[in-house]
């Protein structure tokens, strides 16, 4: 079997050497931006400024930040409905993401997508998909097009631990490896499919092992370590760009909050949540920065202040923006501009 599985991630000491000051500061800023943005989103949801379903990324920040630092501009990103953070990491305007959460015309999806359907074509973020597992064949298709057009680009396709039980996951992995498509499948395993723990959904709870059925190189990764995420994605990207096909990465991570805003997460103990918080990805990076003297406490505090200001500005932008004009209800249904809709 061609599968190269790794059971242990490299020690922090080894990996820390490989990354420079700039990388650490970028990670810190990127992840803190996600954290502050999501904290604010949670608050605003409580105030009913944000409605509908809203799934926060808090705790999982390394999974997005470590991939963006490892990949190239032009590589495509796709994920499920926990989708505010990836576009932030890719450089989308926080104001336009917040405006989308508000349902405003200035939102990235012009107020038609909401929290679950953020899209930013300019920054290669291809959504934001609401049916569990639905984005997996789509991401495989994004990669198919890259191969078809010989662009040298790839697709990184995120999914949750719940999605691995869908048929779409298994069909996509099979197609991707049979056709050697440049795709990286990333399971963000936060331990729970909504309220159902991984252990309750299958006998196979080491999720990376599912890739072995399709001869896909697969490995578990410490999803709380941005260095480990970066390195695993780098290896996968190299394989993809060399034409060796798909990789399956299982990022072991944790969400501090419930599945969605309406979930009090009573299926977990406080101890479990606290244990993961001790491995917080942002704290880990912070400690390294301070230890290596890449920045002072005060400088990091200033970054935090700057981020908080950006988040406040994004809220102000969303507040001040208008809801879409009513004509928008019947636009963007067809690319055809004069489609004859039923008027009655």
């Amino acid at each position: 079997m061609a599968t190269a599985t790794k059971t242990k991630t490299q020690s922090k000491k080894d990996t820390a050497k490989k990354f420079d000051k700039e990388t650490y500061l970028t990670w810190f800023e990127s992840m803190l931006m996600m954290r502050r943005f999501e904290e604010k989103s949670g608050q605003l949801y409580g105030q009913q400024k944000i409605r509908g379903f809203c799934h926060l990324y808090i705790g999982q920040e390394a999974c997005a930040a470590g991939a963006v630092s490892a990949l190239e501009r032009g590589d495509k990103y796709i994920t499920a409905y926990r989708d505010h953070a990836h576009p932030l990491a890719l450089g989308s305007d926080p104001g336009r993401i917040m405006a989308e959460l508000y349902g405003k015309e200035t939102g990235l999806s012009r107020g038609k997508g909401g929290s679950m359907h953020i899209f930013d074509k300019e920054n290669n973020f291809v959504g934001g998909h609401g049916i569990v597992g639905g984005q997996i064949p789509l991401g495989t298709g994004l990669a198919f097009a890259e191969k078809y057009n010989k662009t040298g680009k790839l697709c990184i396709c995120y999914l949750g631990d719940g999605a691995v039980r869908q048929g779409s996951f298994h069909e996509s992995l099979n197609l991707a490896m049979t056709w050697k498509l440049p795709v990286i499948f990333v399971i963000e395993n936060n331990g729970y499919a909504m309220g159902t723990s991984v252990q309750r959904t299958s006998n196979v709870t080491e999720l990376y092992k599912l890739g072995e059925a399709f001869d896909i190189p697969s490995e578990p990764v410490d999803g709380m370590s941005v260095e480990a995420v970066h390195e695993s994605v780098s290896r996968a990207a190299e394989r993809a760009r060399k034409g060796e096909g798909a990789t399956l990465l299982e990022f072991r991570t944790y969400r501090y909050k419930g599945h969605s805003m309406s979930d009090p997460a009573k299926y977990r103990t406080k101890d479990e949540v606290e244990e993961y918080k001790r491995k917080d990805p942002i704290e880990q990076v912070r400690e390294t920065i301070l230890a290596k003297k890449y920045a002072t406490e005060e400088e990091l505090l200033n970054i935090d202040k700057k981020i908080k200001k950006t988040v406040e500005e994004s809220v102000a932008f969303a507040e001040q923006s208008e809801f879409p004009p009513v004509e928008q209800a019947m636009e963007d249904i067809y690319a055809q501009s004069d489609y004859p809709f039923i008027v009655d």
Binding site: I136, P137, G141, A145, E146, G167, S168, S172, N174
Partner: peptide, 17 residues
Amino acid sequence: AELGFTGLGIGSAMNGL
């Protein structure tokens, strides 16, 4: 694998094909 190749086709159509 209709589900798989249908979704794959759609993804490729979103990416220029």
